[in-house]
């Protein structure tokens, strides 16, 4: 590539004469002032969180994740990447797990949201939480609420017959084998590497259910 091939814009770059390499250029469109007319906090939405109705007046840009963390101070749900790439923000909405970072709060009018705080408390652990404790299915704990919400939802998905990538026969009902659990949990990254223990915690709970 040649110098000067790229259009120079907002974050513009001047090239010193010595440079032979290509030239960095910005791809963002020209800066424009934000439309002041739009007051940010004028969108209304309400949904149920852990059984309790919540009404918000919000900046439309607020994600479900930030509504939970910054507005309701339900900080059990974690922000690991804010881009759908880690699963730390997993919550259960209307019975299905989702990444709350890639959902606007406004998309959830009337929804039922369950977060880690809604599954159990330190005094009264959910069976999945207790199994994580027993099998040491966590280390730093940061991915853990997302893992637990996912784990609860995964067992439910298996029960409902939702198929997975590792299922040998698509038309058969899935069962909670180690391979199934691991594939289905793969949207929850744990950099501490508690995977082996998490799979065992889930197997315990799955077994107790049968």
């Amino acid at each position: 590539m040649e110098e000067g091939e790229y259009e120079i814009s907002r974050r513009s770059v001047l090239v010193s004469s010595a440079v032979t390499a290509t030239l960095a250029a910005a791809g963002v469109s020209e800066a424009q002032p934000l439309p002041k007319a739009l007051a940010p906090a004028d969108h209304k939405v309400s949904f149920v969180v852990n059984g309790k109705g919540q009404a918000f007046s919000l900046d439309p840009r607020i994600t479900l994740l930030d509504a939970l963390r910054e507005h309701l101070h339900l900080t059990g749900t974690k922000k690991g990447c804010d881009h759908g790439q880690c699963g730390a923000c997993t919550v259960i909405v209307n019975g299905e797990r989702i990444n709350s970072c890639l959902s606007l709060a406004l998309q959830h009018e009337g929804d039922e949201v369950t977060t880690i705080e809604g599954l159990g408390t330190p005094e009264k652990l959910h069976p999945m939480q207790a199994a994580f404790v027993k099998h040491d299915g966590y280390q730093c704990g940061y991915c853990t609420p997302g893992q637990i919400c996912s784990a609860v939802a995964v067992l439910d998905e298996i029960k409902r017959g939702v198929p997975s990538h590792v299922q040998a026969e698509l038309t058969r009902a899935p069962t909670p084998t180690n391979a199934e659990l691991r594939e289905r949990m793969s949207g929850n990254i744990c950099r501490c590497g508690a995977y082996s223990n998490i799979a065992e915690a889930m197997a315990d709970v799955a077994e107790a259910r049968v």
């Binding site: 339900l74 900080t75 059990g76 749900t77 974690k78 922000k79 977060t115 880690i116 705080e117 599954l119 159990g120 408390t121 330190p122 652990l125 939480q129 207790a130 994580f132 404790v133 027993k134 040491d136 966590y138 704990g141 940061y142 853990t144 609420p145 637990i148």
Partner: peptide
């Protein structure tokens, strides 16, 4: 079991932010 087990598994361990 970890000392802080019940906090980390219930989302009640408080991190920096």
């Amino acid at each position: 079991d970890r000392y802080e087990a019940r906090l980390k598994t219930t989302g009640t361990a408080t991190y920096a932010y």
